[in-house]
């Protein structure tokens, strides 16, 4: 059987999956710390913008006005 980095395919799979699992943990951390946070921040910002937009004065019709 051919070897990859000196290991057979099943052992190499375990080897590479272990490293990938650690990378997954790191990516999860990065996602939560930066991307998800940024998304939440953007949402918050949009909400705040909506809130801070000056409301158009509602025109009320005066008596006799057409």
């Amino acid at each position: 059987m051919s070897l990859i980095l000196g290991m057979d395919i099943y052992v190499f799979s375990a080897w590479i999956l272990t490293i990938l699992a650690a990378i997954l943990c790191i990516l999860y951390g990065i996602y939560n710390e930066f991307i998800k946070k940024k998304k939440n921040d953007d949402k918050k910002e949009q909400k705040e913008k909506k809130k801070s937009k000056p409301k158009q004065p509602v025109k009320t019709m005066k008596k006799g006005e057409k």
């Binding site: 052992v11 375990a14 272990t18 699992a21």
Partner: peptide, 22 residues
């Protein structure tokens, strides 16, 4: 038993940390 035990290292991280915490 050789490097075949590395499957345990994979489970230790994937199940023992990732799945366990989430």
């Amino acid at each position: 038993y050789g490097h075949s035990v590395l499957w345990l290292a994979f489970l230790n991280i994937f199940v023992g940390i990732f799945i366990a915490f989430i």
